[in-house]
Design a binder for these strands. Structure first.
Lengths: 199, 199, 199, 199
DNA sequence: GATGAATGAGGTTTCATTCAT
DNA sequence: CATGAATGAAACCTCATTCAT
């Protein structure tokens, strides 16, 4: 008899394990056996849920993104002031805690894998669309309330998101010059730049 | 008779081939045999110059960076006005031509490989130090001449470089929303923001 | 309540499916899951009826033979003239219709599997004994009635059966030179050779 | 530096090993590792010469046929009398010695594999064409010299070859009723049938 | 009786690396 | 200096079989 909940749970177990392993070893070095061990099962079981390693990785990337967004959604809803909302959003992407670092590392692996994989490019594009829409929305909201400078919200969103990606990468790479603290400052400077200082 | 230049030439040939292959297939899929074929030699010869695949890749990454910088140095020296110099520099990183795209792709591969490799992190940090120094220098120069707003040049440089990296990545990924043209606009907006508009 | 007929039916279903799959994919490529799907059940059920794949195949081979013989028995009984009976018998082995082709293909798979399996050799030998007896019987009957030349009926039967096997194989292999039509001619020539032409 | 003879030798070594293993274990059970061990090398080396297992087997089947024909060619040339030539040819196919038995077993594996492989069907057809031509040629020669009955040589050849295949198969299967001795008798009867008994 | 999720042993194939020439 | 044949350690994936439900 089918126990759907069991199957769904097992699937998540494997995807979570896959993300952990990717984050630790990288896509290149990841072996299906590593994921299996981490998930507490066998390679056979992993292949029972995901036909190929490629399919497993695609699902893991998707799962990583979905979880990232789920974690942020409630945060955004709680901030009525667009300035707080923007800061909260940017702040949540600073690679401080383990969960965020792991998500970033998985994301970085996706980027490079996507350079040679049309399907992953599609996934990346969807996700960035979502993010751009969120950030641009916040900016527009702030402008409507007279809190942000009047600039093209899409350009601002693109610039901000790009900056976050690039800086996070350097932080992840353990750069001595680009620490989380520095990253926070750079982002803060950019946001402040956007704000209209009340006279 | 052994001519040292022959060895040096052959080395470059192999490194160039390695970068081409990395750019096309990615680090993960690159085989020593691919590099050998591209360089017009045999795997044996590749291993004659580079003991291991890891060593080969490290050298290739270094070579990729050196060439990148060499290509830009003369450009920078030709622009006396810091505003032009900054624009020129940023412009040269737009992934328009094949050479620049290839360099970016190799660079992206380095990032992700470095996530799990201390030595490559070191290399990355050196290179970013160099870039930060260049950009911050231009900013400082502009400020000294009263052309740029008075902000911490290091913060500005970090923000700009981060943004370029993040945007370039999206362009390389063939994002429908982030094209080279859009990237240029976002960068231009940021630079203009830095400039003091003469009264 | 358990109805024995249900079990028997299910068994036949599985055996029939096994023969179909063997005929299509070959013993080598046959998977228990294929048989299950074809029979409209699960691998679990297949294993409920047959402990191992080997056992399943043995049963399938046996079933294939039994059905072959059952299909022919009534035909033989209807022909009083030994000449007609022989022709009818040979004719029924020409791989024309789908059922006969399928039976032949399963048979061919058995041959090769039996090369490395004593038990299957035993099965093959029983079956050939049966056939030899039938053919030799017809020949003897024909000789008794003065219709066939006086030759050792066993030698004749062996020759004829061997020829049918070898030719059928070539037809099954889609040989351009050995078609069903050609096979029929060769067999006819051999049978005619056996007949005493009335003066 | 390339040593062509070494490569060719190694190739033959592997093909010979492959045929031995196929003959012993069957295509289905053959593992590349078995062939490697038999050839005294590693699986890596086998794959250096043959990209895939399929390719290896195709080459082995071809090699098996070529060798079979080479072994017979000189025998045929030595017999001026068509009757002797036909007997010699048929005799050489009796599965008596190890070499002949091995060749037959490999051949049988080809048949069944070819049932599901268009390329192997092609190979089978070529080979049978060759044999049919040889046998039909001998028959025609015998008829021209007034030694054989006047029947369609192609029909005769097809019948004879089919019979040899079918009988050999039974002998290979260790049939208690069809031994090499019986097979010889059946063939002899058929040949004698073809001869015109001098008055 | 029937199911199908889970297992893990085993096979093919890849590929960095070595070394005799 | 250069080659490329040979190696063998891994890795992915398959699939017969089991067993809890």
């Amino acid at each position: 008899m089918a126990r759907p909940s069991v199957e769904a749970e097992r699937r998540e177990q494997i995807l979570s394990a896959a993300c952990e392993v990717v984050s630790e070893l990288g896509f290149k070095s990841l072996r299906v056996a590593d994921v299996a061990k981490r998930a507490g099962t066998s390679t056979g079981t992993v292949h029972y849920y995901f036909d190929t390693k490629t399919e497993l990785m695609r699902a893991a990337f998707e799962w990583n993104f979905t979880r990232s967004l789920e974690r942020r959604r409630p945060l955004l809803d709680q901030q009525p002031d667009p300035r707080d909302r923007l800061r909260m959003f940017v702040d949540s992407y600073l690679p401080t805690d383990d969960v965020t670092v792991r998500a970033w590392r998985v994301w970085a692996e996706l980027w490079v894998e996507a350079l040679h994989d049309r399907d992953l490019q599609e996934l990346n594009d969807q996700v960035y669309g979502e993010w751009r829409r969120i950030v641009a929305g916040v900016v527009r909201d702030g402008q409507d309330r007279g809190l942000f400078r009047d600039e093209d919200p899409v350009l601002v969103a693109n610039g901000l998101i790009g900056m976050i990606d690039g800086l996070a990468l350097q932080v992840l790479l353990g750069s001595r010059s680009m620490t989380v603290q520095r990253m926070r400052e750079v982002c803060e400077r950019t946001i402040r730049d956007l704000e209209l200082t009340a006279v």
